Simulated assay, not measured.
Amino acid sequence: MPPDVVKRAGDAGAASSARGGSAEPGTVRPGGRTARVRAAVLQAAGDMLAEQGFHGLDLAEVARRADVGKTTVYRRWGTVAGLVADLLTDMAEQSLPRTDTGSLEQDLLANAELVRRTLSDPRQGPLFKAVIAAATGDARTAEALHRFYEVRVAQWAPCVQDAVARGDLPEGTDAAEVVRAVSAPLYYRLLTTDAPLDEAAARRAAGAAVAAARAGAFVRTP
């Protein structure tokens, strides 16, 4: 996965401290009642993305579903792209931490399984399809999607770095590329076929990434 998103219990990310200054709409981290409003709006936005896609996302309808005033939504997020950017930020903040088993195979299999479960989820799978489709034609959505995956890849890269330190992988292995190689087949399967994302697909993706990494396929070249 680029890694996936599976929500943690609670709303820890939404309760982060607000940033001061002239922040871009949708980027300030609120607390208290504002955090609850943000959580409700992002939940409604995610539901609508999963149901109707990016082009079906309407700020007024999001406000209605979240039981929030329209002016609040327009003032805070400004545009649909701004709302989607904040949704992706929240998803990255709330996603589960990486697994640390001490085994490269098990760590990458855990990553593949997390991606598989997310993309197979009745809500999350369509949501990701909608955001990926939107990113092809909207620069701000694309930027937010890239940031989301940068965060997730960085969270899982240490399992590869640890394998290099143990001597399980060649020196110079690009950890981020190994992590991307795990989830890439799962995303390709999601977007290009109607075949189910089963456990066998996750095992193949993780196993192929491990084999390629051990063969030196991801060693950085000058």
Rank of each mutant, 00 (worst) to 15 (best):
L104K: 02
G46A: 04
L109Y: 09
G21W: 14
P30V: 13
V179R: 00
T27D: 03
L57Q: 05
T79E: 02
P185T: 03
R38E: 10
D47N: 15
V115H: 05
A200Y: 15
R214P: 10
A181Q: 11
D107A: 13
T71H: 08
N111A: 09
A206T: 08
V68A: 11
V151Y: 11
A205C: 10
E143F: 13
A212E: 01
F148H: 06
L197W: 03
G137Y: 06
V115W: 14
E150V: 11
A63Y: 13
Q94F: 13
A215R: 10
D11Y: 15
K7S: 15
L96D: 12
V6F: 00
G125C: 03
T193P: 02
V62S: 09
H146V: 15
M48Y: 14
A23V: 12
A202M: 07
P196Q: 05
A176Q: 04
G21Q: 05
D162M: 05
R166S: 05
K70Y: 12
E93W: 09
T79L: 13
V73A: 04
T89K: 03
G216V: 15
A130Y: 01
S183C: 09
A139P: 05
G78A: 07
R140L: 09
R166D: 03
A139M: 07
A35S: 06
V5I: 06
P196I: 11
A45G: 14
A133H: 09
A39S: 15
A176F: 00
P3L: 12
A81T: 09
D47V: 14
A200P: 03
Q155F: 14
G20P: 03
P25H: 13
M1W: 08
S16C: 12
V151M: 10
E61C: 06
D174W: 03
K70N: 03
A211N: 06
F128T: 04
H55N: 00
V210K: 01
A163K: 08
T79K: 14
P196W: 15
L186W: 04
A202Y: 10
E61P: 06
G31K: 10
V153L: 02
G53Q: 05
G32D: 01
Q124S: 08
Y74V: 02
T99A: 08
L191T: 06
A63T: 13
K129S: 05
G13Y: 08
A211E: 02
